[in-house]
Structures are given as C-alpha cells and as structure tokens.
C-alpha cells in the first residue's frame, strides 16, 4: 500500500509547476515526508546518514546523550533562534531522529533496520526504487529541486 503512494510522491514533487521557496513547499514536500514517515522504520536510505549521524552521536549513545545532542542542535536549528530565512525542515528532521531514538521501542526497530541495511550492500539504486525513503533522500531532493 505504502509503495503505491510513494511511487507518486517524488514525481509529483519533481513536476510541481514552480519549485516554491522553502517556506511554501510544504504540500509537495510533505508528500515526501509521508513516504518517509510511513517507511522510516522499515527502510533506510543506504547511502545516507543515519539518525545517529544526524544527531552526531554514536550508535550506542545513552538516552542522556541523545537528549543532550538534540538540545544542542535545537538551539542552533530551531526557527526561533536560527536565521529567520532558514526553513523549519532541518529542525523537523532532527526532531524526528530524536523522537525515534528516544523511544526504546522505536529505536530498537530502527536499529534492526539499520543493521539489515548495513548487511545489504548498496545494490539498490535509489531512483530505481520508488519506495525509497529516509531523510537524506529528501535532502538530496531539496538540494536538487528547491535551492
């Protein structure tokens, strides 16, 4: 089911008539977010950074370390403190990483998929898989399409 939607998502974004400025991308952008949220725990983009890397912490980080890293990043990335033109997306991604890793159940699930991903070699080519997901595929998309 999810793959049917995701198949649509990236392409619809790509063909949006006008790539709008960051603050206005939400509708299109979110399509990717949905793909992502529905599959985060199931699939992780091979070639990109993990939630751990995003927060700048080792895989064995304690709950305290995760929280501390999240706070440190929030103080830089949160739209209230970041430059007014910076989009909220970066903070939202960090928050997603934080919520996943700070919940023991979600973290365990995530760790398992991360482990499986590392076993599989990057044989899967991103664009060939319509249901690929993960933040960094989106980040690539953003860089390509938005900025």
């Amino acid at each position: 089911m999810a793959s049917a939607f995701s198949a649509v998502a990236p392409s619809c974004i790509r063909f949006r008539p006008q790539p709008p400025p960051s603050r206005r991308t939400s509708a299109a952008y979110s399509t990717a977010e949905r793909t992502c949220t529905s599959t985060t725990t199931a699939q992780i983009d091979d070639s990109q950074t993990s939630f751990y890397q995003m927060l700048g912490i080792p895989m064995g980080a304690t709950c305290q370390e995760i929280k501390a890293a999240y706070r440190k990043l929030a103080k830089v990335l949160h739209p209230d403190v970041a430059s007014p033109l910076s989009p909220a997306d970066e903070f939202m991604r960090v928050h997603k990483a934080y919520t996943t890793l700070s919940d023991p159940e979600k973290r365990a699930h995530y760790d398992r998929t991360l482990f499986r991903r590392n076993l599989r070699r990057p044989s899967c080519v991103l664009s060939a898989s319509p249901s690929y997901s993960g933040y960094n595929s989106r980040r690539t998309w953003e860089t390509d399409q938005c900025w």
Binding site: C12, S26, A27
Partner: peptide, 27 residues
C-alpha cells in the same frame, strides 16, 4: 487521492494544503 497536509510554523501559523493526485500519474 486527495492529499491534505497541515503545516504549522514556529510562530504557530497554520497552513492547510490540499491537492488531487490520480494513481499512475506524475502530476
């Protein structure tokens, strides 16, 4: 597929987006 998206920014402004996507189409 009617996609309804809600976006709340840091100053609490709510925007609602909606659009139609037909299965199998790109746009």
């Amino acid at each position: 597929e009617i996609n309804v998206c809600m976006d709340i920014d840091a100053s609490n402004v709510l925007r609602v987006f909606a659009g139609v996507i037909m299965p199998g189409t790109q746009h």
